[in-house]
């Protein structure tokens, strides 16, 4: 029965021994209904984009309905080709892959040094990294942009890739994970004649796959969604990413339904990633903040 499974309930104020009362049962049903409404509100806008992008522009302007009159997937193919979306997907892909590589290598190395090697004076760097966790990066975007231009690095992916190699949040994530590993492991490897980098590659990386995959997933979604810095660096170079593209469609002569389809194209890859890794993502989202 519906209420039977509540005897195994672990969280929250309503306990299994409350169930004998009719009012509690009513309350439980109300809560489920409210949660369903909340989930509906969270999912509806995206579902609407999906449904509305089946409409053609006339139907979109005239018919005030939620559901389209027909479901024809060829309109998506047409918009995909008309807007040359493949180019933006490839650009985004190039950007995301580079960002993930930089994020894993550079944040991993600094976390390895701060969490395990701990050379003299590492506390200063740890302090600076923790401090940069609090200072929002957007406040220094003007100076960063000027610096990148002075070095002549604008109009290329390089500064964006490298910017993901300096992510304090991921450094802290790695560091906490590394610090919980048994120190004997590294001593043993050292006695076997591994040098510092070999310990990193042969011991640390294989043992850290869970945290590396969490960091990778977060970097992928962050890089895919990143807008301001890529926009400033890449706009007008032919290397525009998907986010830059949909931003510029807003003011271009693309029709409303084409913009909607473009929005949908930009949502699909992270959604697929989320459907595959939903457990890692929802668990990681909660864990990251709780560990302080």
């Amino acid at each position: 029965m519906f209420f039977k499974s509540y005897s195994a309930k672990k969280d929250g104020a309503i306990r299994s021994f409350d169930l004998h009362s009719f009012r509690v049962k009513l309350l439980i049903i109300c809560i489920v209904v409210i949660c369903a409404i909340i989930a509906f509100v969270c999912l509806f806008p995206t579902v609407w984009v999906f449904l509305a992008s089946f409409k053609d522009i006339r139907e979109f302007r005239r018919e005030v309905t939620i559901f389209p009159s027909k479901f024809d997937f060829s309109v998506f193919v047409k918009t995909w080709n008309d807007l040359k979306f493949i180019k933006y997907y490839i650009n985004s892909l190039i950007m995301v892959v580079g960002c993930v590589i930089c994020s894993v290598i550079f944040n991993g190395l600094i976390a390895y040094v701060l969490g395990i090697l701990k050379p003299k004076g590492h506390q200063i760097v740890t302090g600076l990294v923790m401090w940069s966790l609090l200072i929002p990066s957007t406040t220094s975007i003007v100076a960063l942009f000027v610096n990148v231009n002075r070095l002549g690095l604008s109009r290329s992916f390089i500064p964006i890739w490298l910017s993901y190699g300096a992510n304090a949040f991921i450094v802290v994530l790695y560091k906490q994970y590394f610090e919980r590993m048994p120190a004997d492991l590294f001593e043993a490897a050292k006695l076997d004649g591994c040098n510092v980098l070999q310990v990193f590659l042969k011991i640390l990386v294989p043992l850290s796959t869970p945290i590396i995959s969490v960091a990778t997933i977060f970097t992928i979604t962050a890089a895919w969604s990143d807008f301001l810095f890529p926009f400033l660096i890449l706009n007008g170079t032919g290397k525009e990413t998907v986010m830059i593209a949909i931003f510029s469609f807003r003011t271009s002569n693309a029709t409303d339904v084409e913009v909607l389809r473009a929005i949908l194209f930009s949502i699909i890859p992270p959604t697929i990633l989320f459907l595959i890794f939903q457990k890692q993502i929802t668990d990681g989202a909660a864990a990251g903040a709780l560990k302080e």
Binding site: F227, M243, F247, I267, P270, F274, T282
Partner: peptide, 16 residues
């Protein structure tokens, strides 16, 4: 379900 909006890219959310 409630986490899903967080997956939607910020720019797409705003335009939506």
């Amino acid at each position: 379900g409630v986490y899903f909006p967080n997956i939607v890219p910020g720019m797409a959310t705003i335009m939506m």
